[in-house]
């Protein structure tokens, strides 16, 4: 199978000399199109750092990340930003929606950054809000929505640019159990497809059932990859 992400011997450390601490140490893995890969582990195990490295946000000290036959860390900073914009969709733990913009405007942001026409971007954003079931709330600011609805707005924003890779950081951390499961159900059913790879960092064992594979990390190292219940 063709890997969506190929990470090889990644290492990231902070500090120097005696203070040198590895956040990610000698990590090699592949993530494939059409799968949901969970990255799990205790706090400080390096999951978020690894997610940042493979999504083009944090430069590793060594190793390579190949996406679409391109070693992304050999690109210039502006090219990496462009790569993130075109290839990666992010759903942040705290959503990071702009409270002063409408939900449609929030969702349209990636398209606007791609320099698409404003009205066209809003139309496309509205379409994606309809897909996530919020077609009747396009004009509302995010603060008027529930936590689950805000999560779906964030998903719509991540999807609107049709990225190959979706990154979810603790997607259910701010949601109750039922809402969390509904969101994951939606992701599994409506977001995942054969041309998309989804990486999810989570502590929440209640949603492990939605994983195709689960990669466990400890002390910056991958200690095991196992098949998820969904496989």
């Amino acid at each position: 199978m063709n890997p969506a992400i190929s990470a090889n011997e990644l290492a990231k450390w902070f500090g120097e000399g005696d203070l040198k601490t590895y956040a990610v140490n000698d990590v090699t893995f592949e993530a494939y199109f059409g799968e949901i890969l969970f990255i799990v582990g205790p706090s400080g195990s390096g999951k978020t750092t690894l997610l940042s490295i493979v999504s083009g946000i944090l430069r590793p000290n060594s190793g390579t990340v190949v996406i679409d036959n391109v070693d992304i860390w050999k690109l210039e900073p502006d090219q990496i930003a462009q790569f993130r914009l075109n290839k990666v969709g992010f759903v942040f733990q705290d959503y990071h929606l702009f409270p002063r913009l409408t939900t449609a405007e929030n969702v349209a942001i990636p398209l606007i950054l791609m320099k698409k026409d404003w009205d066209e971007s809003i139309r496309e954003a509205t379409r994606y809000l309809e897909i996530v079931g919020l077609g009747n709330k396009v004009q509302l600011p995010p603060v008027k929505l529930s936590g689950g609805e805000q999560q779906r707005v964030a998903i719509a924003r991540a999807l609107v640019s049709q990225p190959d890779i979706l990154i979810f950081d603790e997607p259910t951390a701010s949601l109750d159990g039922d809402t969390g499961r509904r969101v994951m159900e939606f992701v599994k059913t409506n977001v995942l497809n054969d041309k998309r790879c989804i990486l999810i960092v989570t502590h929440d064992s209640r949603i492990f059932e939605y994983a195709d594979r689960i990669m466990k990390m400890e002390d910056g190292r991958v200690v095991g990859i196992e098949k998820g219940a969904s496989h």
């Binding site: 930003a81 993130r84 914009l85 990666v88 992010f90 990071h96 702009f98 942001i109 950054l113």
Partner: peptide, 18 residues
């Protein structure tokens, strides 16, 4: 107050110049 949001924009793909 908007710093994190600007950071999120950066993560999404906004360039520093933008």
């Amino acid at each position: 107050e908007n710093l994190e949001k600007f950071g999120a924009l950066k993560a999404i793909g906004a360039k520093g110049s933008e």
